[in-house]
Nucleic acid binder design. Structure first.
Lengths: 349, 349
DNA sequence: TTGAAAGCGCTAACAT
DNA sequence: ATGTTAGCGCTTTCAA
């Protein structure tokens, strides 16, 4: 592409190609005079030299590529943030990210071919990212390369993994509500048997307990995590006289349903009802009135973390298998918009 | 990675590495007996041989990489569909897609560095995709490699480009409304000076004209293409007595605002008011009640088209610069959900 | 402190 | 119809 090779630099600098290589790669254990280094650097810069990666890859047997296997990149903006984080981290290590989209697999036959595609493309390692936080059993050929899981945990617990701190996120959300003065806080939870369902509930209860509020079963409802069921649940929990003054929703879609329910019931958000969501789906959260206060998933950070872990693995320091015992949990920050206010009746109506 | 090289295959098949190369690459002008071919193929399969791409790249001076420079991959699901289309097409040609996320640039200094990143990574060609359909002036270094524009046109008109057929999409939307029996159809348009604003208006007028309906200025409103302004516009146009029975919205976010306005006005969708959006943002369109009938942008198809064009360019047939005069326009299909019905008063109230 | 030279795995021009 | 061989541009051992 460029035409200029290491030889051109060597010629211009008046040294051997070996020296150029040493200088440009900061090869350790090689003493080159400061003067020569400068000359080489200048020559390289002047010529706009960049290494031929194929040649380097061939010689070093390192492709400089890492693969990211991502489920359903197409339908979720979340995947985008993971990619972004991975991308940035990869670039910082002069690695190139190769992405492969995988269909969302229902059961076992999980992505063997997609992993193979990556391996065929000679990636040095692979990132395996799922669409939502869950436990997976990874394809067997993933054992052929260093691998890190993103937003997923390995059923066999062998691979390093990074996931959101669901409990912490829920704690942040509900604490925010409690600190605004709410004590009757409903929880519109998901029904799926996934970590988020269980852990967000744990966080919810933890906060209530910490503040001496008894968790009422009546206030904890479950339905599929979609807008419509969220709407139904909200109508239900908002029906009685002693309705909650705030709702913590499993995700932003359910919160969207709650908004609709509130509108139908003539309840003003946040004056009559405060709502906190989860996921921070911009398209929803920012387009609702008022803006939805919600908890953000650390997608960018997980992508970043995973690449760093991969680099670590690749560097060989991995011999000291310093893998933490369980998956690494990353903080889920609260994103404040306009859907939370003090309850109407500060202390009982 | 794999350990098995062309030599191993040659040895197992009892032929020279040349023959293996010829067979496996289907090198033209090379006569190899069917029997030998079979033997080589079998040996390769048996060993699970895959070519070392670095070696091949070094030798052929083709990296097998193509770059996709995408604006704001992170915040829009649209980018995901472009990637997917490009990905699939690339894979079909045994090409690997390298993606680079670019910040959304306001003015001139457009993405020079991002293009350079790709060039440094030795991509053979680059796809340049913008976040929404518009005219750009591409960075100068994009002239150094074959390039194709996605969802954008080149100010200088030199690069092949593929964009959505905005007029056609609007025609499909409004025709759908007219065929449902509507004659008073409002258009909540964008204000930005972008192709979509102008062309969707053209499509809207075209359909009205074709059906002998006079376009009333009163029914054509403009505002920023967000939920809130959409809401305001809808309130405005829905205020009078002879309000429109249907609304064509510039995008799904504005349509979302229109839904809210309808709810406030006690108008049932689609009984009292039909709505068609544009963009098919799943997160919005599928989560509204009723589901929003809207027009889909051909993101996947544009990504696909662009890679095919690139391959064509790369193949050298490009000498016959068979570039169509303007950008290629791809069809925007209507996606029917539940927001359109016949108007309440079939022929005047 | 610097340089000569081998060779990574493959393709393709040129034998045979 | 098949085989020999010369590099592609780089890193790295080894020698000077």
């Amino acid at each position: 592409m460029n035409g200029v090779g290491i030889r051109d630099v060597a010629r211009l600098a008046g040294v051997s190609i070996t020296t150029v290589s040493h200088v440009l790669n900061d090869t350790p254990q090689t003493r080159v005079s400061a003067e020569t280094r400068a000359r080489v650097r200048a020559a390289a810069a002047q010529l706009g030299y960049g290494p031929n990666r194929a040649a380097r890859a061939l010689r070093t047997n390192r492709s400089g590529l890492i693969g990211l296997l991502s489920e359903e990149i197409a339908t979720t903006p979340h995947a985008g943030r993971i990619i972004l984080g991975a991308q940035d981290a990869a670039r910082a290590h002069d690695l190139t990210l190769v992405i492969v989209n995988a269909e969302r697999e229902s059961s076992g036959g999980s992505h063997r071919d997609d992993v193979q595609t990556l391996i065929d493309r000679q990636v040095e390692a692979v990132l395996y990212a799922t669409m939502y936080h869950r436990e997976v059993s990874v394809p067997a050929n993933l054992r052929d390369v260093p691998a890190v899981l993103i937003d997923a945990t390995d059923r066999d617990g062998l691979l390093p993994a990074v996931v959101p701190d669901e409990v912490g996120g829920a704690v942040a959300a509900v604490t925010h509500l409690v600190e605004a003065g709410h004590r009757r806080i409903g929880f519109l939870n998901n029904v799926d048997d996934v970590p988020a369902t269980h852990e967000r509930l744990v966080g919810y209860k933890q906060v209530l307990h910490r503040h001496g509020i008894v968790a009422e079963d009546r206030l904890i409802l479950q339905a599929p995590s979609e807008t419509r069921p969220g709407h139904a649940l909200a109508r239900e929990v908002l029906a009685g006289d002693d309705r909650p003054t705030a709702l913590f929703c499993y995700n932003d879609r359910m919160a969207m349903g709650a908004y609709q329910a509130a509108a139908e019931l003539g309840l003003d958000i946040p004056r009559d009802l405060s709502i906190v969501g989860f996921d921070n789906q911009e398209l929803i959260a920012a387009n609702l009135f008022p803006g939805l206060t919600t908890v953000a998933l650390p997608h960018y950070e997980m992508g970043e973390w995973a690449v760093e872990m991969l680099v670590h693995l690749l560097s060989g320091d991995a011999d000291h298998k310093r893998l933490p015992d369980g998956p690494t949990r990353l903080h889920c920050p609260l994103v404040t918009r306009g859907s939370v206010a003090a309850p109407r009746e500060p202390r009982k109506a």
